[in-house]
């Protein structure tokens, strides 16, 4: 499941729209798969892994504020079926990410 981090939602401010791909779309790790808009900014969403989209969070169309309220829960964006499960090992968990953000 893919969304954005607590840190990212704070930096963006009030999310007003999430432009997510259609189910079935093939994604490549590190490439943009959509955008997230706040009132006065727009940011690309990057796929953390290679795979295909198996679900899109339909709730965000009516309630994009879920991304701010619960980025790791109800504010998820898409579900990806991994092409290679080993890619997961490359990613950071929330704690390690927090440490990384704070070190900058």
């Amino acid at each position: 499941m893919v969304g954005i981090t607590q840190y990212a939602q704070q930096e963006l401010g009030d999310v007003v729209y999430v432009d997510a791909p259609a189910v079935g779309k093939a994604l490549q790790a590190g490439k943009s798969f959509g955008t997230v808009e706040s009132v006065k900014s727009v940011s690309d969403l990057y796929a953390p892994v290679t795979g295909s989209v198996t679900a899109v969070n339909g709730k965000l169309a009516d309630a994009p504020e879920l991304v701010n309220r619960d980025p790791y829960g109800d504010g998820w964006m898409i579900r990806i079926k991994l092409a290679d499960a080993k890619e997961l090992d490359e990613l950071l968990d929330a704690k390690a990410y927090q440490a990384l953000v704070e070190s900058h």
Partner: peptide
């Protein structure tokens, strides 16, 4: 809906 526009995007 200003995120469509040139001054932001």
């Amino acid at each position: 809906l200003q995120a469509r526009e040139q001054h932001i995007r």
